[in-house]
């Protein structure tokens, strides 16, 4: 038996935030070649770029499961920038240490987080790109809805965008943008408006 700390055993036996999310905002899958471990991570991000919900699934030893659980606890509520900076050592320290031979088990959690954040940014970039091109092009249906009005982007999330609308027909603008975004991104993107 490894000399696992009390806190590590607690996270292993009662893992926090285990499972999967329906329609996560980002997702990652990592595996460790060394010991054949594997992990999946689902995250939902709020409009302030903070991790609102996080769930993991891990195939691995007690150390790997505890490290996954610890990582989710540390990451929850943090902004994506902050979460990406979470280090392996931080996870190990959070668990009150780990046998040296098991250090590599903690790496997986950190890697999964890094990849999930990258996945979020990639998805957001994709949505942003399409929104920007719509606003550049101003297709005829949008021009009609906007009439003399104008749009400013306030915040972009992969599946939600917040715009400031000056003038124009709010409901028509929302309908046109949602339709165009759906066509171009292949997914439902909610459009919210501040006037």
């Amino acid at each position: 038996m490894w000399k696992y700390s009390k806190k590590l055993m607690d996270h292993f036996m009662n893992p926090r935030n285990s499972g999967q999310l329906l329609n996560p905002d980002c997702h990652s899958e990592v595996g460790s070649v060394q010991c054949g471990d594997a992990m999946t991570l689902d995250i939902k991000v709020d409009d302030e770029d903070r991790i609102a919900e996080i769930r993991f699934m891990t195939f691995g030893c007690a150390g790997a499961i505890a490290a996954s659980s610890a990582m989710t606890e540390i990451a929850k509520g943090k902004t994506l920038e902050e979460a990406r900076a979470i280090s392996n050592d931080q996870i190990v320290a959070f668990l009150g240490g780990m046998p040296e031979e098991k250090y590599h088990c903690s790496v997986m959690g950190q890697e999964a987080l890094e990849l999930a954040v990258a996945d979020f940014w990639h998805r957001r970039d994709n949505t942003a790109e399409h929104l920007n091109s719509i606003l550049r092009e101003i297709p005829a249906n949008l021009a009609a809805a906007l009439s003399e009005g104008s749009i400013d982007i306030e915040h972009i999330h992969p599946v939600r965008v917040l715009i400031r609308l000056t003038g124009g027909d709010k409901e028509a603008v929302v309908a046109v943008l949602e339709k165009e975004l759906q066509n171009r991104t292949g997914k439902k993107v909610e459009v919210m408006v501040i006037l």
């Binding site: 038996m1 010991c35 054949g36």
Partner: peptide, 21 residues
């Protein structure tokens, strides 16, 4: 290894083919 760790708590001794153990 995860299974053995939980079995160990219950006083059950087995062994495994896992590298992690």
């Amino acid at each position: 290894e995860a299974v053995m760790t939980l079995l160990d708590i219950e006083g059950i001794c087995v062994s495994s083919g896992s590298a992690c153990s």
